[in-house]
Design a protein around this nucleic acid. Structure first.
Lengths: 145, 145
DNA sequence: CAAACCACTTGCAAAATGCAAGTAGCCCTG
DNA sequence: CAGGGCTACTTGCATTTTGCAAGTGGTTTG
C-alpha cells in the first residue's frame, strides 16, 4: 500500500487501492454525513472499527491527501481530521452508493431520513452537507484548506 | 458475510458489506467496461485475482442478485455471468469512481480513453455500455433477465 | 497530584488472501 | 474411444491483514 505499487494502470483499480475497502469508506461516510472530525468520534460509530485499523486508515487517507489533520485549537492532545478538496470530490461516489442502497436494499430496518432524502432530493442534501462542511471549516481551521 | 450479519443499520455500511471490497468491484468493472462474462476472462485481468477469491466473489454477487449465471449455450462446461437489473444499477457508482480517478490521479501512465470519455461525455459512454450489454443479452440469454 | 482522556501502539489469535497444485466434467482429435 | 486440453472450480498451506484486549505516553481536569 505504498504510493505506487499499482497492480494495473486501470483508473478504477488505482482508485480502489486508495479507498476501496469498507473501513476507509466508512470513515469517509462519517466525515460527510455525520460531521465527525475526531479519532474518538470515528471509533464511536456503530460498526466498531478497531483503533489500529482506524489509525492505519487515517494515515493512508492523509498520505493520499484525501484528509488533512490539525491540532484541536483548545486541546493539544486532540486532533481534528477534515476533507481536502480532493476528499470532497468523493461525495458523488458516496451519494451514488446511498442511492443504490435506498433503492435495492429496501428491507433495512429503518431507512434513515438522510439517505432517503439523498435519493429524492440529491441537490438539496448535497448543498446542506457542503454548507455544513464550510461552516465547520470557518470555525475550526484558519486558512481554509 | 451471510445475508444479514449487518454491522449497522446504515445504508452505506450495508452496501459496503455487499460489494465494498477491491476484488468484488474489479469484477463489476470487468462486467461493465470490458464486456467480460466468463471465469477465465475475469482471471485474465491484469490485477491477477486468485481462483478461490474469484469463485468466492462470484458466489457472493450471485447470492445478492447482482449477477446471474447461465450455462454457455455451446459448451456445457463453461458458464456465462451477467449483470441483473440490480447489478446494472451499480453503474453510476463505478462511473463516479472513474471520474474521480481521472480528475485526481493525473499521473497514471496511460489514461485510458474509455475512462477519459466517461468524464467528458458521460451520457454517451453510458449509452454505449448499456447498448453493448443489451446486445450481449439478446445474443446470449433467452428471456432477457 | 491523582484520575480521566486522548490518540495511538503492541501482542496475539482469527480470518482473509496468495499461490501452487490438484480434480471432475466436457470437448476435440486421431 | 483413448488421450490431451480446456473450464470452473477445490484444496492445502504460507503469508498478510484484521479483530480484540491491553497497554503507553502525553494532556487536561477536578
Amino acid at each position: 500500500m505504498t504510493d505506487f505499487d499499482a497492480r494495473s494502470e486501470c483508473v478504477i483499480c488505482n482508485v480502489l487501492e486508495i479507498f476501496g475497502d469498507k473501513w476507509t469508506l466508512l470513515v469517509i461516510r462519517d466525515l460527510f454525513f455525520f460531521n465527525k472530525h475526531e479519532f474518538k468520534e470515528f471509533l464511536a460509530s456503530p460498526e466498531g472499527i478497531a483503533t489500529n485499523v482506524l489509525t492505519d486508515r487515517l494515515k493512508r487517507l492523509s498520505t493520499h491527501e484525501i484528509i488533512r489533520e490539525v491540532r484541536h485549537p483548545q486541546n493539544r492532545s486532540r486532533k481534528l481530521y477534515y476533507l481536502t478538496e480532493k476528499g470532497k470530490g468523493l461525495f458523488p461516489i458516496l451519494a451514488e452508493m446511498a442511492k443504490w442502497g435506498e433503492k435495492w436494499l429496501p428491507d433495512l430496518p429503518a431507512m434513515q431520513g438522510l439517505y432517503n432524502r439523498l435519493r429524492t432530493n440529491p441537490q438539496l442534501v448535497r448543498d446542506e452537507i457542503f454548507q455544513q462542511i464550510s461552516q465547520w471549516e470557518s470555525e475550526n481551521i484558519l486558512a481554509a484548506n
